[in-house]
């Protein structure tokens, strides 16, 4: 086997890694940090995807310059829009269910069905695709036989930037300390002076906003339908649980190992067999290590 096939296969693995990580970032905050099982997480991704689609169409009204540069705008708008909807959901639904995980699961699952139907009514059941700007198309050819798609590179850069931001926010800012304190002991955090209501609101909104950004990014590699987001929800939970819900580094490494296993085995067998192999490995590891790959070593 020659080297260029290895290189492209590795790049495929990296692309899958970015997709998984982008999806998992928001959930790592909402599920990993807050402990809320948000079954509607995928729909926030869909919000971002449809937002990007709409903005890509707006180019025909606003002119060519917008057609070229709508994508950075779409990322920001997707974050804000998905975050705003998330804020409302926390405010009127999730907040009242913090101590009832099973009810949260049911309520958010119901919400996801409602949102899917809303998308279907609004945009139709057929899948739509955003028109990609020229600078995202094509590929790099470092040698004659290696083909590196530019949208894949863009996804990687976006994933790296977002992950860096989230890690920095959680570990090195006052807000990060508030989030982690609230998660560990909500009552004590409030008695220590932290406005836990606001922290919960913002954390949930930011998690949903990140899902929105993931949705925007997905329009570069796939088309968008009413149930696009829900296709990813299982994988996303898998990444967060496998990595160990408490630590982001776990989420990152778990996305990486799942993606690389998937990409490597896909080369030797069919896609679904590769998935079976990946899943069984994860199940075995989780049976031996229920807390996931990474947990915080501390007396409790």
């Amino acid at each position: 086997m020659d080297l260029s096939i290895w290189a492209m296969q590795a790049f495929n693995g990296l692309s899958t890694f970015c997709v998984l990580l982008l999806m998992a970032l928001g959930l790592a905050i909402i599920f990993g940090q807050m402990g809320v099982i948000n079954m509607a997480h995928g729909e926030f991704l869909t919000i971002g995807a449809y937002t990007t689609f709409l903005l890509s169409q707006a180019g025909s009204v606003l002119g060519d310059w917008f057609q070229t540069w709508y994508f950075p705008v779409a990322i920001v708008v997707s974050f804000v829009l998905a975050g705003a909807v998330g804020w409302l959901v926390e405010r009127f639904m999730v907040r009242h269910l913090y101590r009832r995980p099973l009810d949260t699961l049911l309520a958010t699952w119901g919400l996801s069905l409602v949102m899917q139907q809303a998308f279907r009514s609004g945009f139709g059941a057929r899948e739509v695709s955003a028109t990609l700007p020229d600078w995202l198309m094509g590929s790099l050819k470092p040698t004659a036989t290696i083909d590196i798609p530019i949208n894949g590179l863009f996804m990687m850069a976006l994933t790296a930037a977002l992950t860096g931001l989230v890690v920095f926010g959680l570990t090195s800012t006052r807000f990060g300390v508030w989030v982690r304190a609230t998660v560990q002991n909500r009552a004590m955090a409030s008695a220590a002076g932290i406005n836990t209501r606001k922290v919960d609101e913002l954390t949930f909104a930011i998690g949903c906003g990140l899902a929105g950004v993931a949705g925007a990014a997905f329009t570069t590699i796939g088309s968008t339908g009413p149930t696009s987001g829900s296709l990813y929800i299982v994988d996303t939970f898998l990444v967060v649980v496998f990595g160990g819900a408490e630590r982001l580094i776990g989420t990152i490494l778990s996305a990486f190992s799942i993606a690389q296993t998937q990409a490597a085995t896909e080369f030797f067998m069919t896609g679904s067999m590769a998935k079976v192999l990946t899943l069984s490995t994860i199940i075995v590891i989780l049976m031996l290590r229920p807390q996931g790959l990474f947990s915080i070593k501390v007396r409790r």
């Binding site: 300390v177 982690r180 304190a181 560990q184 002991n185 004590m188 955090a189 915080i296 501390v298 409790r300």
Partner: peptide, 11 residues
């Protein structure tokens, strides 16, 4: 009731 996984400084 200190926050066990936070560092002393973060507490």
């Amino acid at each position: 009731m200190v926050f066990p996984t936070l560092t002393v400084e973060e507490n």
